[in-house]
Design a protein around this nucleic acid. Structure first.
Lengths: 110, 110
DNA sequence: TGCATATATTCCCATATCGGAATATAATAA
DNA sequence: TTATTATATTCCGATATGGGAATATATGCA
């Protein structure tokens, strides 16, 4: 077995920086391939290929309009990432620091 | 150029499910390699190798105690992931749905 | 039909990957 | 010193990657 395929899950798909850029570029909008190409300044095949991966993983959905393909972010597919990382937020948050301070205080009191 | 190396950034390091499991297993605690091995039921070299990647990326830090190596999560290194994914949260959240409803209402009123 | 536009696909290759097995290193104990 | 414990490293192979260049497909238009 090699590395987990990029199309296996959102974590792997989004590990590639260019795919993150594409999702950012889309935002809440629906955009054609060429719009993304122009916005990011990459080659068209490059954008298409990354969109292909994002589509396979379900991170974007595609709609055909004439000869254009309109893409939009499927945000809920990012939720596993959000849900996984969020619990760690407390480790760097202010509250966690305070908890640490409290523990230090308790030690001193002893 | 092939795929971005796993040691390049937190996104890539965490794309591997087993490395996510290790971070989960650590949580807020400091644990030795063997504790993780027992907790997860994997082989020791496997755990060590994944810890090696996590350490290179800075997602864990290591402290030597006798012949043991104690590892702990470096949570703030997960922050780039949190920061990147959080803005998308609004696209699936209740508030965003409500905004959509409001827009629908406005259309009907016309 | 024939041409232009919009997008996808194929071919190629250098590069890392993850896992397993075996082995190396380091620290402690007898 | 020698044995044992704790952990890291090396070697291997099958596999997928992302980029570039060229090409295919598909739709619309004259």
């Amino acid at each position: 077995m090699a590395r987990t395929p990029t199309t296996h899950d959102p974590f792997n798909a989004v590990a590639e920086p260019k795919r993150r850029r594409i999702l950012e570029a889309l935002g809440a909008e629906e955009r054609s391939v060429n719009e993304i190409v122009k916005k990011l300044g990459w080659t068209q095949p490059m954008v298409s290929k990354h969109l292909g991966v994002l589509k396979q993983v379900g991170l974007v959905s595609e709609r055909r309009v004439g000869r254009q393909r309109m893409y939009r972010v499927n945000a809920q597919r990012l939720r596993p990432i959000y849900d996984w990382v969020t619990p760690f937020e407390r480790y760097w948050s202010e509250n966690f620091d305070r908890l640490d301070e409290v523990l230090q205080e308790l030690k001193k009191e002893k």
